[in-house]
Write a protein that binds this DNA or RNA. Structure first.
Lengths: 363, 363
DNA sequence: ATGAAAGCGCTAACAG
DNA sequence: CTGTTAGCGCTTTCAT
């Protein structure tokens, strides 16, 4: 009867119930047109032999899986892990399973991971990160594999993101209202090229609208320290602050980097927001802590995830190829305490003694 | 030749190369004993028709997949997302793909997600969370599906975790050395039952060793607010602090909750560490920020992940059933600034005016 | 309402 | 060294 160490199959059930394979298949799949009596017999047999459907066989014959891949740059980044969680949640509610791939931001990894997903014949892919260096998008399109790109814009594919430019303008507008006139944009490799460009554009637009000009030296941290201040970054920052006309505020394209920046500033003896203001982007959970209290541009994660899954499933379940859907959601400014009214801070750095973490003194 | 919208198969390659299916299969799989000439012809044909192996077919015939499931309680919890990332990384290096399931801590979800993994015939499962309310462990054993449980102990299965009891003792010992005599243990539903029990045990042991006794009211937050102070929790805390002999220090079984606790304390006007000390558990990235500076017990995540994968692959690739491997790693105390020397703080709460976030005053 | 038969794309003996 | 053959477990016409 039952195979030795292998799983019972539909055939074992059929024998136990005294029916044919197809009948078992029909009841297992809940197909219509089965006599109540047969149904119970089969169900009992299923229970009896401990049958569990083999999805790999089913997927082979159907030439279609119910697996979707999600590729993410860095799962340790709370913005992405939360997004991944939400996507998995919704996918699971629709009886799909999720394969996850972490690329570490490397195009090479991105390529091989997507390749693996394709070999697994995933029904669709959600990308939370897109290096841009590789043509995965084209590849997926040519393979007819539904793709939706989240939180960064990509022409020629489905995507759902926020209006990055408007978000940046919101942030910069806030800083301008607070009286800041020298605002530096700090970006990092943590955010996609396109999103970064859009945020930069919004930054420049908001500045122009206020009759200000962008700081010549837009900063970019290639390898952010990630919740840990890095000596090289400290030096760079020190140089910027020691310049002729140092910024009184920073608009940072990413909360994680904004928090790093605050760490670095305070390590240099510059207080936030008393001496310098900082506003971030994303609104990760961490930003809401009283001790961090980061003013930031919030992305509606639930909405992003919900739309992503909706768009993806729509394409997976459609029989024809649907036109792209590209949706932009509105960002929202969350005002907290990392940005305050501008004061004369031009000499902040030189005036402050360079001590480490001057914030707390022992009790 | 090429099928309409379906993928080219091994047969298409065979025809294009003028060889048989098996030959193609052999070269694709890199089997030995293929003439160099045939090999090139096949490889060219592969390129030509755009062939990509169908893993679902391969897995069906081999009756074994190269997919492993990882089930996690909450991907948004940085401790777990980082662990998940590390596991995926190592798995991927061994050419395995990862299916991820987020249970949200619900036993019901845990059951259905594991069921789905089983239907997918995953080669093995890594559990980063175990509700304990369901008998998944028994089920997996009876199905002969290799399982390794990480960061919590489970008799009767492979597991790798740290010595929770020793970790707790480390934390409490530190607090005792700082002069604290009334130390409360605060646990939460974020940590597994068994790990929680072990930490409690270590806490009591360390206290006993110092001739102290455990606070009567060991606190437990069932639904931690998660980086956001919750009114109910605030009340509970207020009650504890207003008691006859309030604690001067808290040992918290989880960093996230420790950070919540600090938030809540400060919201009540109690300063950390000046008035009350806090030590956490896990050492998530966040804990290292200067503004948080949480003294905590570190778990060697990389080591945990590495061992988990090693143990899992060992069982997957072994032909026989191997005996359980259960390994406990040593925890390490990371001393930062959230715990300081004990001072008379019995009246801290009553003395301090109840203001919100009194830490910063505007510039 | 149920069963028989033909594969899905691939691997794994086994022959030649 | 290469080809033939027989399935893996399931779904899906098509008969009955």
């Amino acid at each position: 009867m039952g195979s030795r160490r292998s799983h019972p199959t539909i055939l074992d059930v059929a024998r136990a119930a005294g029916v044919s394979k197809s009948t078992v298949s029909n009841v297992v799949r809940g197909a219509a047109g089965i006599s109540p009596d047969t149904r119970r017999r089969v169900l009992n047999a299923v229970e009896l032999v401990g049958y569990r459907p083999n999805l790999v066989a089913r997927h082979l014959v159907q030439r279609q899986t119910t697996t979707v891949g999600i590729v993410v740059g860095d799962l340790a980044n709370p913005f992405y892990s939360e997004l991944a969680k939400l996507v998995e949640q919704r996918l699971s509610a629709h009886r799909y399973t999720t394969m996850i791939c972490n690329t570490d931001g490397s195009p090479e990894n991105e390529r091989t991971r997507v390749e693996a997903l394709l070999e697994h014949r995933v029904a669709g892919i959600v990308m939370l990160q897109l290096s841009g260096d590789t043509d995965v998008v084209g590849e997926l399109r040519s393979q007819q594999v539904p793709l939706v790109v989240v939180s960064c814009w990509e022409d020629g594919s489905n995507c759902v993101s926020i209006d990055d430019s408007a978000g940046a303008a919101l942030a910069v507008g806030h800083l301008v209202e607070l009286g800041h006139r020298r605002i530096t944009y700090l970006s990092s490799s943590l955010v996609e090229t396109r999103a970064d460009a859009d945020r930069l554009e919004g930054y420049e637009r908001a500045l122009a609208a206020a009759g200000l000009e962008a700081t010549k030296a837009t900063l970019r941290w290639e390898r952010p320290a990630y919740l840990r201040s890095d000596p090289r970054i400290l030096h760079e920052l020190e140089r910027v602050l020691a310049s002729e006309d140092p910024p009184t505020a920073f608009f940072v394209s990413n909360d994680l980097v904004a928090v790093d920046l605050i760490e670095a500033l305070e390590e240099l003896g510059v207080r936030v927001p008393e001496d310098v203001s900082v506003v971030g982007f994303d609104d990760i959970a961490l930003a809401g802590l009283a001790r961090i209290s980061l003013t930031t541009v919030a992305q509606p994660r639930e909405h992003l995830a919900g739309l992503a899954v909706e768009i993806l499933l729509e394409r997976i379940e459609a029989h024809e190829t649907l036109p792209f859907r590209q949706v932009r959601l509105a960002p929202r400014l969350i005002v907290r305490e990392s940005a305050a009214a501008a004061v004369g801070t031009a000499t902040a750095l030189r005036a402050a003694p360079r001590t480490r973490s001057p914030r707390r003194t022992s009790a």
